[in-house]
């Protein structure tokens, strides 16, 4: 199988381990990624607060490049990239005014026709059966909290992906690895997102509630599909525990890392040593076939 690949800035920077693990897993599953040549920033949350046109034109440029390079389906693992690409597609399709301005700005014609996949829909395409049949490690005692955040499922009218209030597609992928998804409360609650920089206390407060609920529902690990969510839940966790004592740590993995673990891939190649919250105890307990609570 072959997909176009739009890594975005996070996967080539702060979320390096997301990129590593995804490529490692896909290699194992005989799936090729072809990176879009000369891709640029998707605009993320900055562009649309500065200029509406720019927030559409940046993803539009990447979509046009993908098409020129003969791609039909592209994978955008970062939830924000996925969201921006989909929103841009929607606006270009429904708003002639913005399409004409974008084409003028880019000096190219835009035409629809690229299918943008997120991490979950990528694995759905590859086939959950393939993950299931290749799983090597016994995950039967592993309780997983699937955390979607906001950008993967909202706005529903545009993304048309899963139930925005109670999504369940990530749970299906997790089940394929043999792990047990927990039925918890906060899978689409806000983690505080970009307030991480300017209002860290807001992020700590919101992320704490998410971590608490996952632990409350006996999860051993939280699995995410968004670099922003990961950064808030993982990087801010030490300070959350420092400011609110008496709490346990919980490792935060990318969905691709969890799949990699189940396939028995090398931990280092999956970037499991690159997290702030140590993943070693979790990995150790898995290899002993016992999961620490």
């Amino acid at each position: 199988m072959n997909f176009g690949y739009y890594p975005g800035c996070s996967l080539s920077g702060t979320a390096k381990e997301f990129d590593l693990s995804l490529k490692e897993v896909l290699k194992y599953l005989d799936t090729d990624l072809q990176e879009i040549n000369d891709w640029c920033c998707c605009g993320a949350s900055s562009a649309h607060s500065a200029s509406h046109l720019l927030s559409v034109a940046l993803p539009a440029r990447n979509l046009i490049l993908a098409k020129e390079q003969g791609m039909k389906e592209i994978v955008a693992p970062c939830a924000a990239c996925f969201n921006r690409l989909k929103v841009a597609q929607h606006e270009l399709k429904t708003d002639d005014h913005i399409r004409i301005n974008t084409e003028e700005l880019l000096d190219t014609k835009y035409s629809d026709g690229i299918n943008v996949l997120n991490l979950i829909s990528l694995f759905q395409q590859i086939g959950l059966e393939k993950i299931k049949s290749n799983a090597k490690v016994d995950f039967s005692k592993l309780n997983v909290a699937c955390y979607y955040g906001c950008l993967l499922v909202r706005p529903h009218d545009i993304l048309k992906f899963d139930d925005p209030e109670n999504p369940t597609t990530m749970e299906e992928v997790v089940k394929a690895t043999g792990a047990k998804p927990v039925d918890w409360n906060f899978k689409v609650e806000c983690c505080g997102a970009a307030h991480s920089i300017a209002h860290t206390e807001i992020v700590e407060n919101l992320s704490m509630k998410i971590l608490d609920d996952a632990i409350n529902y006996k999860a051993n690990v939280i699995v995410v599909a968004c670099p922003m969510c990961h950064s808030n839940l993982d990087m801010r966790q030490k300070n959350i525990i420092k400011h609110n004592p008496g709490r346990n740590k919980i490792p935060i993995l990318y969905l691709s890392q969890l799949i990699g673990l189940s396939l028995g891939l090398d931990h280092k190649k999956l970037g499991l040593d690159l997290h702030f919250i140590d993943t070693a105890p979790l990995i150790a307990s898995l290899s002993e076939n016992e999961v620490a609570v």
Binding site: H156, D163, P164, E165, N166, D183
Partner: peptide, 11 residues
């Protein structure tokens, strides 16, 4: 109808 998953009705 897109449902009200956030109200947990049925759950």
């Amino acid at each position: 109808i897109k449902g009200y998953g956030e109200y947990g009705y049925g759950k």
